[in-house]
Design a protein around this nucleic acid. Structure first.
Lengths: 128, 128
DNA sequence: CTTGATTTACGAAGATGTTCGTAGTAAGGT
DNA sequence: ACCTTACTACGAACATCTTCGTAAATCAAG
């Protein structure tokens, strides 16, 4: 059975994004990547990763002195949680309204729209 | 110029939902509605509404003794903010991924899917 | 072995979110 | 005028989030 995880906070999601895109990393590397977008102390990232490990959001390999962290869940899994959560809390379960909100928030490109159509096709065929 | 508002918290969004669906209300009425879903003290709702008024999330009419609160922004506006925020933070701007997350989070009905298609049509025609 | 650099662990401070109790104030009925 | 009820204001407690400084442990050179 898949364990229940808390919704990641803003700072945590930022770190998860790094881990998803770059694979298992040391604290140092995560810190370097995060620093490109936001000045942060090394120990801040360390502390966050430790807390995230406690929560179960990440796992770590302690075999080396510099521990290696990786996301406990794939990006798609967490995205599904977050989308479902917002869908429920702010859109009363209406996926079309959520999509409308997203589209009007940032104008989607033509490619994005065709991608969405393609996705709908696939979704309708796959899951009944 | 439209003022910048903070992202509503979970408890705040709960209250906003009540205000959107039922129009301008007294604290008492908001409390009654919220209580149907979750046991809460009256003063908790009161305090939340006062804080939300400070933040600008709601406005209030103090002409009557029982103040009347209403959401400062329409539901669609706030939904757009929230969708755009999540889109940015968790989906790197990919609306199709957000939709996919929402669809896989809670299986969409056939009606929902056609509604989404209809929305896409309208969106493509309207905004270029 | 000693020194310096790197890493983890931990505590703590400050901000924010959530909840509730108490006090004070206004209104209405008797 | 008095009492009861309804309402607002406010402080405080507690949890969570975020950030950082300091100390301790580990490793690599010299």
């Amino acid at each position: 059975m898949s364990e229940m995880l808390p919704r990641p906070t803003d700072a945590e999601l930022e770190i998860l994004t790094v881990l998803w895109s770059r694979g298992p990393l040391t604290v140092r590397t995560v810190h370097e990547v995060v620093c490109e977008r936001k000045a942060t102390q090394y120990t801040t990232i360390l502390k966050l990763l430790q807390i995230m490990a406690e929560k179960g959001l990440v796992r770590r390999d302690e075999k080396q002195r510099a521990h290696i962290y990786h996301a406990a869940r794939p990006q798609e899994w967490t995205q599904r949680q977050l989308a479902g959560d917002l869908l429920q809390r702010a859109f009363q379960g209406s996926a079309s309204q959520l999509l409308l909100g997203a589209l009007s928030a940032r104008k989607a490109s033509k490619e994005e729209l065709t991608e969405i159509r393609r996705l709908l096709e696939k979704y309708e065929k796959g899951a009944r």
